[in-house]
Each structure stands twice: as C-alpha cells, then as structure tokens.
Computed example of a mutant assay.
Amino acid sequence: MKTFLKKVRTKISKSGSMDQLSLIGILNPIIKGWANYHRSIVAKSRFDKVDHEIWLKLWSWAKRRHPKKGSRWPLRKYFTTKKLRSYRFSVNDKSKKAIVERSLIKSSDISIIRHIKIRGEANVFSKQYDEYFEVRRSAKLMNSKTGIKTVLSLLKKRLLW
C-alpha cells in the first residue's frame, strides 16, 4: 500500500500545470488496477484509507494551484457532489459533442470478490468431481470481463451456425 500511495502522490505532485481531465485520465487506471489486484483480500477499510489519502493529496494539489483563492474556491471548482457522495474529484469533459462528467474512481467502489478455496478431497482427475470443477470454472468465467466476452462470443458463434 505504501508503494502504491507513493506512486500516486508522485504522479499528482509532478502534474503541476496539468489540467484536471488529464490528471483523472492518468490516475484512474492506476487506482483501478491496484484495487482489482487487491480485491480478493477483502480489505475495504484499507481501500477507504487509500481513497482518503488520495483525496488529501488532490486537495493540496488544488490549493497549490490557486494560492490566492480561499479554501472554498478550489473545493467548488475541482470537487462536485453527486447523489450522496460529496467531494468527488470530477470535471465536465467538453471535448466530444456531448458534455460528459469524468470523475476519479474510488478504490472502495471496486466490488470485492472472495477467493473460494477448493475442497480438500476434490481431485481434478476423479470423475465424481467433474461437476464440482465445472461449476467452479463457469463461476470464474462469469466473474471476469474476459470470461463474459468469451461466453458471448461462443453464443454468437453458436447462433450464427
């Protein structure tokens, strides 16, 4: 967690004059990748701590960019409130035809998927556990994007034949 936070902090620190949309574009894949890697550990409190540390660094980044403004001004400019979540680091993206709101993802929003241990008596080579391993394999497929894409492509091929 320390190395991840150090990486995020250096990215934010080195983005002195970068616009908010670019900073969100840099940070989102880093946060999402780290959270997806650690999602099976079931550490929701750690995810909340990481989100808080990132928020503190973004708050100092916003205040540093506008030293002559009051403390509420950067809050209104860089952070928005949507639904029940306040102080989201977000910006309206006007580069396309429609205005789209881009916001920084929170690692605590990544769903936690627990790792399910294999039964001790289950053996891959035994015929009596074929159904057990088939259920495990299909559940694993349906919990990943690549697995869902694979299933959809197989269904399309089957429907086209």
Rank of each mutant, 00 (worst) to 15 (best):
V50F: 04
K157M: 13
A98Q: 14
S111T: 14
M142W: 13
Y87D: 00
R65G: 13
K97I: 12
P29A: 09
I26E: 05
N28E: 02
E101R: 15
G25C: 10
F47A: 05
W61V: 01
F89S: 03
N28S: 12
A122R: 06
R137D: 09
S15N: 13
D130T: 06
D48C: 01
V135R: 06
K63C: 06
R119V: 14
K82F: 01
K11D: 11
I116A: 08
K2D: 09
Y129K: 09
Y132V: 00
E121W: 11
Q128L: 00
F79C: 04
N36F: 01
D51G: 12
R85N: 10
A139Y: 12
D93C: 15
A139C: 09
R158S: 11
D93Y: 13
S95N: 12
R158G: 00
K11P: 01
T81C: 04
I148V: 13
R76W: 15
V8H: 02
I99Y: 00
R102H: 14
L152T: 10
I116N: 11
S108F: 05
K82Q: 10
D130H: 00
R9G: 04
V8K: 02
I24D: 05
D19Q: 08
A122K: 09
V8N: 01
S86A: 07
K7T: 15
K6G: 09
K14Y: 00
E131V: 02
Q128Y: 14
P29S: 08
S17F: 13
I113P: 00
S153V: 05
